[in-house]
Design a protein around this nucleic acid. Structure first.
Lengths: 354, 354
DNA sequence: TTTATAAAGACAAACGTTTGTCTTGAACGC
DNA sequence: GCGTTCAAGACAAACGTTTGTCTTTATAAA
């Protein structure tokens, strides 16, 4: 019965302020004043009670649309993301969502699949739908926007855009340092797709750290990811190609964990063992990395934190905080697991086992 | 320079209809009429051009807030989801997003982490924010709502709620049929968490099909998932527990692929081989299942399709289509990979290998 | 020259709020 | 008895659109 009752209650469309006012014999403004506890208005306690009781009775829900129009605040922000069905993005979104909802904000999200015209168009639409600010995840913005913007994993310096990024230099130090310590010198690298915002930054950091460690980066040991995939298939063909070129290498630094899984599969299909013959180093530390077989050595990005941070900064900016940073770097973490080991001395391109 | 130009253009806040009208020496209504191509209004072509030119010049973007208020249409729907950082949910959302955006709708999403008060509260809030309808993914709604609702993986029959579900009976036929054909008779089962909407339905289907096939379901071979996790850790402890109970079984039917990965890890840690000693059957066919080592045999849910279907039905209902189905079942697909094989004849609880 | 017709666009109301100002009584001080 | 003050709430404007109706002016028909 209680459920049934509730059902009925909830079924009626919310009443407007005007309906309430008519019922109470008051004017809408007064009702609004009471319900919002506007200070500096003298309304007797008795009337206040009456109004509140009526609001409950009619299941009054203010129209946030109308309120937004009037107050010019929507408490809504836009979230722009390349792809919804992707672990990286959604982990960041999860952090964003947590913080926003905690603060009473909601968000409209849109995905663009890296199509430039969508990246151009969506911010406008989101704004016309009332977004007060924008969080862009892994999205290559090209110019300033007439609202506060925080970019997660964005690297271009754009006026009005705060970049929340991983400290890629530190990440490269951790990954290359680890491989170097194990004894690896012949290292193959995977460069991220051109449309992925982190690609260049991550590559530049690797180059810089490699130089510092005196690790040579051989162009023939560098493969470039091209496809727009979020499955391990991403890393498979490029490693196959690497193997076919018959180059010598003892380790691969993958662009991310997903691609690392594909890489491992390609090595395995070529009868090479990981990490016996080739070490594989991932990036991101997605949920599954710890459960892959073998467990993947990787760099952990605090994705959820990055999302929360992005949301926090955006909200601060909305509250008028002017002195916001242009860039905020969060520290990566080295997670050593089972895909890295000292190099096999007779390391070789292929057919290491019969 | 072109970029710079664009930047400046885009930087100004959009002008209102009134500003435009003043500039043109017209009244706002007329401008609106032109910009919306309202039929049955006589405005000379010359004026129309003038108006459109001005709109471009001022980068006019109508306020959808104001428009929504006036037209009582927001073209926004709400999406309710337990968790953003989860492959299942986001794959469905991806399908939803695709369809909605194709049709010019946007969506507000909210996640509730299975907290009943949030599940109760968010639909209201979303509605007061203008959502015209709701899509609830894997969310246990308890009563009708004053707007059209489509539930993905919802099973309670609630007036006004359309359920988009997998055909679980068919799924059970595929999975148990496959194991049966391979020769398995001693099968362990994992039941989903009580808060997961599919759990009961899936279990009931398994029970029904097992009876039909004459497979005995031994209570001591049934373990229950409890934790609210989206990592393989979900399946690890329950399988450990199963192993410790020293029961005999040759296969495990996992609640999903994620838990299957944890299960495989637990078996491996107990020195059992998959599928040599124990076959493992997953569910969902997430991206990684094909790349796990060994590749996981599973049931594919067409998640993206389910999302698209949900969105399509909701939009139809918003357009006034009354004769909508109360339930719509989509067919699963059997994906045979490497984690299932004929049972090891000396099958046993543990220590099958020294 | 009048009258009917149509073109071009102005006007006003409405959507549901919020907020600054104004009105009405009543109570109070003197 | 009269002005002053205050409580209680009404009023109106505004947010930026849309849409039905009304007005003005020009044109064509009679």
């Amino acid at each position: 019965m209680s459920v049934r009752k509730k059902a009925e209650e909830t079924l009626e469309k919310p009443a407007s302020l005007k309906i309430l006012a008519d019922y109470l014999g008051l004017c809408p403004a007064t009702v609004s004043v009471v319900l919002n506890d506007v200070p500096g208005r003298s309304i007797p306690q008795k009337t206040r009670e009456r109004v509140r009781a009526a609001a409950r009775k009619f299941n009054y829900q203010p129209s946030l649309l109308a309120r937004s129009l009037r107050k010019k605040r929507t408490f809504t922000i836009g979230v722009l993301v390349p792809e919804l069905s992707d672990g990286y993005h959604t982990m960041v979104m999860s952090g964003i969502g947590d913080h926003l909802m905690r603060e009473g904000y909601f968000y409209l999200s849109a995905h663009h699949r890296h199509k430039p015209d969508m990246i151009e168009e969506y911010p406008r639409i989101l704004m016309s739908r009332g977004a007060e600010g924008l969080i862009a995840i892994d999205t290559a913005l090209s110019h300033p926007l007439p609202m506060p913007v925080v970019a997660v994993a964005g690297h271009r310096k754009i006026p009005g855009v705060t970049n929340v990024v991983l400290d890629h230099l530190r990440a490269a130090e951790l990954s290359l340092g680890h491989l170097y310590q194990l004894g690896h010198r012949q290292i193959a690298f995977m460069r991220g797709q051109p449309f992925s915002a982190d690609s260049d930054e991550r590559w530049n950091s690797i180059v810089a750290v490699a130089r510092k460690l005196n690790i040579e980066i051989k162009p023939e040991l560098v493969v470039q990811l091209e496809r727009d995939l979020t499955s391990p298939e991403l890393g498979y063909p490029v490693v196959q190609q690497l193997l076919q070129s018959n180059q010598r290498f003892t380790a691969i630094v993958s662009f991310n964990d997903i691609a690392a899984i594909g890489a491992i599969r390609a090595l395995r299909d070529a009868n090479l063992s990981v990490p016996g013959d080739v070490s594989v180093f991932g990036f991101d530390d997605i949920n599954l990395s710890a459960y892959h077989n073998p467990r993947i050595t990787t760099i952990r990005q605090p994705l959820r934190d990055m999302g929360e941070t992005a949301a926090r900064i955006l909200l601060q900016r909305l509250q008028g905080f002017k002195n916001y940073p242009q860039e905020l770097a969060v520290p990566p973490e080295l997670i050593i697991r089972e895909t890295t080991a000292p190099p096999n001395k007779r390391a070789l391109p292929r057919r290491s086992r019969p």
